[in-house]
Amino acid sequence: MKVKIQYIALFLLAGFSACKKDNYDAPSDTFSGRIVYKGEPIGVEYNQVNFELWQPGFGKNAAISLSIGQDGSFSQLLFNGNYKLTIPPNQGPFLWKQNAAGRPDTVAVTMSGSQTMDIEVMPFYMIRNSQITAASQKVTANFKLEKIITDAVNGRDIDRVYLYLNKTQFVSGGNNIASADIAGSAILDPNNISLTADIPAMTPTQNYVFARIGVRIAGVEDMMFSPLVKVSF
């Protein structure tokens, strides 16, 4: 019996000796903000548009990838330190600054405590004056598309414009219960576009849907979206 107690004591000792706090605290400072054009956030598809933070000086290089939310916002917990922010080429429905060598530019980010920063980019288009309303089992969207990048080199045409409806607030090409679309070539007046989608039957029934306008730009992978609207009917 005596032996067993000794063993138990030994195990307890061994067990407790491992109970030491981790060397480092978890990162606690929030780096947050939005992707904006002249202060106006750019809506994108959830989890599809990413940008990167690089922190030089710690062994091998690897980026911290930040995903932009539906409403153009982002947030990330970081350690204090100096970071470089960049947006890889062909990410998002916008252009990012380039340096003289034609490579993506970087922005220095110094973290000492939480901070908020809006990232200014050049979108190909902006969705203006969007109004989404419901009437008689239909959702109608009226809006204007303003071409922001107009030069011949970087300017792009509209491939297709969509109106998406979904039961939840995640609304995109993959997540929708109904959609309507019009080809870019069929748009007669970009200042006055109207799309109408029927509201399908939903199980369980709900008296509202979430709706967004999506714009697919020719040759650009990521669509841009209008702010999310909850439409009750």
Partner: peptide, 17 residues
């Protein structure tokens, strides 16, 4: 992989990633 590109900075990154 990032680790490969760190050990060999001459490896160019793939496009659109």
């Amino acid at each position: 992989d990032d680790a490969l590109r760190s050990s060999n900075p001459k490896l160019v990154r793939q496009p659109n990633q």
